[in-house]
Amino acid sequence: MSDQQQQAASPGGAFREGFVEVDGFRIRYCEAGQGPPLVHLHGAGGLRLNAAHDLLATRFGVIAVEMPGFGQSEENTRTRTIAELAMTIVKAADALGLDRFDLMGTSFGGKAALWLAVTHPERVRALVLEAPAAIRPQNAARVSGTPEQMAARLYAHPERMPPLPATAPKVQAKQQRLVARLRGPDRDAELETAMRQLDTPTLVLFGTLDRVIPSGMGRHYKELLPNGHLVLVYDSGHAIGAERPEAFAEIVTDFLERHEAFLISRAETVIHP
């Protein structure tokens, strides 16, 4: 296998990098696949492509956006709220020529995605929230430390996962400062009021072994979102797409393609026709 082939075979290897300039930020994104556009907003640890991104890229044009202040981008000291961050993402979508798109947010990015959806519902066809951090238990400990310590929090079975790449201490500190400033209260009354009015079809996913935000938080989304669906992903931790990519991509794809009709089984059980 050539180096190029090996790179394409690793998670996210087929994604191409690009940049857009909005709100004075130079925003990196990774893109792959053909089909309806699917914008992904990452979690507090930054943009890490995984096998689920590759699977989703077989059906969608996946655009994984690195939010300003994460990764190698300059420290973001200007964005004051997560709603403002969501506004910047809308402008990034404008710059990418995206009118309506599917939107997926992971953990911290789930809260940003929710803000985007409630403030610009006309832009979002359907919303997927992977272990969202918009509603948190009191005093939930943040994910930090060595890659091994972080893996123990993010995954149900860290021993089955490839090691997390080490993040440079400066980058980690910069990201943590940004997240601490933007994450907002554990229960955000303004956001929750807006969620009650959100008609956008929304899929909320939690791993049954989530050690960052307990899966029991999922029921609040089900209570608040009029068109929300809660799905528990068995034997997964917080990083569902990384830990159970096939299960994650299957249900996300089904939901984004059929919205509420995804509740209707299409499984064929005939054995010998």
Binding site: T208, G218, H229, L230, L232, Y234, D235, R244, I251, F262
Partner: peptide
């Protein structure tokens, strides 16, 4: 193991939920 987990969850979860398992799949 998965079936037991799902039974306990079905007993205790107050809101409708889907189950994306390894051996069991229920949307509602």
């Amino acid at each position: 193991d998965e079936g037991m987990e799902l039974i306990l969850k079905a007993w205790s979860e107050p809101q409708p939920f889907g189950w994306q398992g390894r051996y069991f799949k229920f949307r509602t």
